[in-house]
């Protein structure tokens, strides 16, 4: 991978509200850069919630539109200051 790109700040970030996630896994399939996974831990409903790997998000929002829950995923994008 090109060092220059690797060192650049990610264009996006995903926040998972673990208690709102039902662990259906659709976002994991859908995420183009594959930066989501199902967590090992269980949430209060007994689901393995989705989790962001921590880097590589492009902020495309596809996971957001794939997720059936209104507020389980929030996607942030990097804006020029």
């Amino acid at each position: 991978m090109n060092n220059e790109i690797k060192n650049r700040e990610d264009r996006g970030r995903v926040e998972v509200s673990a208690e709102e996630c039902k662990g259906c896994g659709l976002c994991i399939e859908a995420c183009p850069p594959h930066v989501l996974e199902l967590s090992e831990r269980l949430n209060g409903h007994g689901y393995h919630p989705a989790a962001y790997l921590g880097s590589g998000c492009t902020g495309c929002g596809i996971c957001f539109y794939t997720c059936p829950e209104p507020g389980a995923l929030t996607v942030f994008t990097l804006q020029a200051t």
Partner: peptide, 17 residues
């Protein structure tokens, strides 16, 4: 916090859109 829909149900997506 969550909807009453089952995991992976399409209703949630449509509600969202």
């Amino acid at each position: 916090l969550t909807t009453h829909y089952c995991p992976g149900c399409g209703h949630g997506n449509l509600h969202k859109y």
